[in-house]
Amino acid sequence: MNESIQTFLQLMLSGMSIGGVYAMVALGFVLIYKATGVFNFAQGELMMVGAYFSFYLITQYHLHFFQAFLLALIISAFLGIVVEFLILKPMVGEPIFSVVMITVGLAVMLKGTVSLVWGHDVHQFPSPFISSPLSLGGVTIFRSSFWTIVATFALVVIFILFFRVSKVGIAMRAVANDQRAAQIIGISIRKIFSISWAIAAVVATIGGFFFVNIFFVTPDISYIGMKAFPAAVLGGMDSVPGAIIGGLIIGIIENLAGGYLDKLLGGGIKEISSFVVLILILMIKPYGLFGKEEITRV
């Protein structure tokens, strides 16, 4: 295979795997935003906390990684519900801006608590994946990255089914569509809010689990939230497929920019590239790639 094509594919693939993590965190943003109208600035922190849950269940309690993973998901779902109940519920009826500020506070709190309880050290995650990379027709990829991509696509399918077929999924869309009408047919808005937070925390934890497999365990991984943010906006803020595709695009662009431009222009391009792309796309499509199509007929 031509070497430059090979490099390109290599960059694409590793971009997709990090993009998959962005996608999962972005998905959490979108779920909460769609259902409750709140922009949750603590999404990256939820991911980080979820990663710590998995890490400590494996290293301290010597659980099999799969058990640890499942248990971490359950704990984070519970955390999502508790956060919604203790912090967001009392804020119902307050201006949305104040509620968003509360999530900023929540981010600080979560990160502070993790640093306090588990310290600031950087740990290697005991990865369940074999360290020898996979070779896919001339392009190599780490198994952890490969499974991150697989998990991302699996999540897309799961969420599409969830929102199209399941009773709760359809009710969540109904609440996002028209809260009053949903309330009048007997849907408990409170319950839907708390389910949204639970799911957002769960997908963040899945993202966190895969991210620490390709990176390290440290409280600072919550910065991924800042990358997931452009991903969510790029996807249109209220679109589930949009969040996933937005995440993948941001991941790929970052990696390509890092691979090609950093060498020419010095470091840093990788970090800002996603925001540059975001601004360009928003100039053309102000509501993002998959922003809500307004139905004009009444």
Binding site: A171, A174, N177, A181, A182, I185, G186, I187, K292
Partner: peptide
């Protein structure tokens, strides 16, 4: 409710199923 408050982003079927949510 008044004003034909259907869920306009849901399909006809979904609007009906969600009516039986409880």
């Amino acid at each position: 409710p008044e004003g034909r408050r259907i869920f306009d982003e849901l399909t006809v079927d979904e609007n009906l199923w969600v009516g039986a949510y409880h």
